[in-house]
Computed example of a mutant assay.
Amino acid sequence: MAIEAWKCVVKDCKGFIVFENADFDFNNIPILDGIYAFDDPSCTECGKQYKVVPHYTVITAEDEFEEATSTCITKFEKREIERSFENETVPYYKVQRFINMRGYSYSVDSVMNGYRAKKRGEYISYTMKDCVENLEKELKELVCDY
């Protein structure tokens, strides 16, 4: 299986066009909506429709045939991690997703302890400070200081 990721052409969109290219048969190209196209994926964020046409060019589904830019699949994976963080509503899981997004090895409990230490005026590391400052709202909800 080979997965490709292309950057969406919509201005300010952070989404990707993702499709599997392992089974493309150049001898039998399907016709989708009157166009020779292997697949018709959509943007992961804005939903804009695209067509994957022969020679691995990705174009928009409308008539303007604007070409998208190929990108690394790790950029897509990173954006998916960011999206899961942005969409999380449960404070504990939001802290956990932030730790994952930044690539830190902290546990949620250690970040909560770092928050308490900062409130007491104690030293915390640069990366712990990053967690505490970016997750202050969630940590206030998780840490009950009476």
Rank of each mutant, 00 (worst) to 15 (best):
A22T: 15
F65Q: 05
F38S: 00
T60N: 14
F38Y: 12
S42E: 10
R97G: 02
F65N: 11
G103L: 07
S107R: 07
V95K: 01
I81E: 07
D33I: 04
V95F: 01
N27K: 09
A22Y: 06
E80C: 12
K75Q: 13
G34F: 15
R97F: 03
E67D: 06
E82H: 09
P30R: 01
V90G: 05
K94I: 13
G47E: 04
P54N: 11
P41C: 09
C72Y: 10
N100W: 08
T44Q: 04
M101K: 06
Y92H: 10
Q49E: 13
M112Q: 05
F76Q: 02
A61I: 06
V52R: 01
E66K: 10
E77R: 04
T57S: 09
R83S: 04
Y56G: 15
H55W: 12
D39C: 14
D23W: 04
F26I: 08
C72P: 02
Y93K: 11
E45I: 13
V111G: 03
Y56P: 00
K75D: 15
E67L: 01
P30E: 02
Y50S: 01
E62S: 14
V108I: 02
Y92R: 10
V53I: 09
D23K: 03
K78Y: 13
I31R: 15
D33G: 08
V58Q: 00
D109V: 06
E67R: 04
